[in-house]
């Protein structure tokens, strides 16, 4: 088997196992109370981290870039209670505009 197919097979199997471990082993019943109180905070902490890494993450280290203009526009739109669809479109549009002008 070529290294390409070996990587495809191994990465695929590992990812499927990681994604399904919780749902297959613990699925369909409430988590123990202590675990549940921890997992409840996963959404805000991971979502905040995703905002940071997606906005300023680069191939190497941090980068202040045009995406921050889009994110600022998104923040203003959210503050004005715009729907999510509009927020996402405005962020992409603002970033594209900055790039076209820059």
């Amino acid at each position: 088997m070529s290294s390409t197919w070996l990587v495809v097979a191994l990465v695929g199997a590992a990812t499927m196992a990681i994604k399904s471990a919780g749902p297959v082993l613990l699925g369909g019943r409430p988590l123990p109370e202590r675990l549940a109180s921890v997992v409840e905070l996963l959404a805000p902490s991971v979502l905040a981290a995703l905002v940071v890494t997606q906005a300023v993450g680069a191939d190497a280290g941090l980068a202040l870039n045009d995406r921050l203009v889009g994110l600022t526009v998104a923040a203003i739109a959210l503050w004005r209670r715009a729907p999510v669809l509009l927020v996402v479109v405005l962020a992409a549009g603002a970033t594209a505009l900055v790039r076209a002008l820059g």
């Binding site: 805000p44 999510v84 992409a92």
Partner: peptide
């Protein structure tokens, strides 16, 4: 990137973070 599509991801995550 020309279309600014990479900026759609942090914007989505920010929008979904707010209610949290």
């Amino acid at each position: 990137a020309t279309l600014g599509l990479d900026a759609a991801f942090p914007a989505l995550f920010l929008a979904l973070l707010v209610p949290q």
